[in-house]
Design a protein around this nucleic acid. Structure first.
Lengths: 249, 249
DNA sequence: CGGAAAATTGACTTACATCAAACTCAGTGG
DNA sequence: CCACTGAGTTTGATGTAAGTCAATTTTCCG
């Protein structure tokens, strides 16, 4: 109830003005006030085939999203970290299982409630649509990784995009947390656990990364890793686009 | 102009009633009245990176959608056939090149115009959203094919879903037209042309398919092919869902 | 510290890629 | 109409990246 209040006030302040509103609407605001849910590592949040009644925002922790094929193979479709959303691109039923990698806290919002908010607040629709387009972009990226790249390229790409997601300065060594297991990474990249290990060892031998325990990797030479990854990315969403504006066209 | 008229009348007839409107809105109606464009085989309709100003509906023919990686590899993201739409899931710039496989006729609609229609006609939004969700579903399917399946499984999956797209009765031999080259199929499945050929030859030897010239394949034993493909599909969109309703839950 | 799960490394196998040659077939022109 | 042509396809021989199987080692946690 009170979050609907919050939204109304943001909405009515923003609608009359054209251009960017004074306080931009974000999904943080949409989820604000929803109670937080906790999940222990290994617990499931929802299962493939469940009616997709809710969407989620992760407060902290990491989730893996996967499907199990009839013969038991597991295809990991992606990972989600703190601040990211979950379930938006599933209409009707969830198309994958979501399982906590670490212990996870998240907020839940029913689709019914989301729809009601959408009626009230005009800014919401394009915001959700942007998230959906982002998912399509990521899926297409993944298709190229799996269809065209070799084991080393795939792994490099995984590391580089993980680093990018942290938002850290990409020009100096980036330390990334990889809470998932090697098996998870393998199932995500369409490789075996042994191949992932061997590739990581090779990258270490070549001085491109440093391994710090199981779940921490330091990317020592980003540009080399990016080069290895194929550099076929779409425009980097985090790139400072204003640099172009500095120069006369 | 006159197509906007058409839409207005459909819209105002449909909005007052709840439930399904008398004449369901389809994209055919949205595109009706747009002039038809022709493209010869091999011609490009738009290029990756172009500003995605328009969306398209194919009247007849077949298109391939692809991206070229920096080192020259070509990743085919999909094919589009008569009746299907194109460009909806690209915001800002097109994320792939669209090229005519056969000679193609299609209708073009500017996004500006589409947006204007959206304001006028309420039914349009969910219709477009459904198309976008369908694209996500297809992309996820493709991820599993490329990440988890072997060459024979991939090829079988390609054939089975091509057959499904024709809408033909899946219980008896289905003849499908494959206007694209073997190289196209290979680039779509993340294989080489030789592997695609060998797999097709093997399927023929095993009596699962019959090859009729270069561009026609008859799927002789659908259930075996489906089994080979892994049968991991989401709910078949063509499946008669009402069967469930017949039985008490 | 002890034990179990996860990760790493090595030896061997295999599915697919690569390279190379032959075949098919749709068009074209004599 | 038929030989010629060249692109597209098929088949075969061989190479290689990644998978499989089997130890070992590391790491984490009680």
């Amino acid at each position: 109830m009170y979050s609907s209040h919050l939204l109304s006030s943001v909405g009515s302040a923003a609608i009359p003005t054209f251009g960017p509103p004074a306080e931009p609407l974000t999904l943080d605001i949409v989820f604000a006030g929803q109670p937080a849910n906790k999940f222990a590592a290994g617990e499931g949040v929802f299962w493939e085939g469940d009616k997709s009644a809710d969407i989620f925002q992760i407060i902290e922790g990491c989730l893996r999203l996967y499907r199990i094929l009839p013969d038991g193979r597991r295809a990991i479709m992606g990972f989600r970290f703190a601040g990211e959303t979950l379930g938006l691109s599933c209409e009707g039923t969830y198309c994958y299982t979501a399982e906590a990698v670490t212990s996870v806290r998240l907020r839940r919002l029913s689709r019914a409630r989301l729809r009601a908010m959408g009626e009230e607040v005009r800014q919401l629709q394009p915001l959700l649509l942007a998230k959906i387009f982002e998912e399509i972009r990521a899926a297409r990226q993944h298709i190229i990784v799996l269809g065209q790249l070799g084991a080393e390229e795939r792994t490099a790409h995984f590391l580089v995009s993980a680093a990018r997601r942290t938002g850290a300065d990409q020009r100096r060594p980036v330390t990334i947390e990889l809470p998932m297991t090697r098996q998870d990474i393998a199932d995500y990249l369409g490789l075996t656990i042994e191949t992932v290990c061997r590739v990581l060892s090779k990258l270490k031998r070549d001085g491109l990364v440093a391994l710090e325990g199981r779940h921490k990797i330091i990317l020592m030479r980003m540009t080399d890793l990016q080069h290895l990854a194929g550099e076929f990315d779409d425009a980097d969403p985090h790139a400072p686009t204003y640099i172009q504006a500095k120069w006369p066209q």
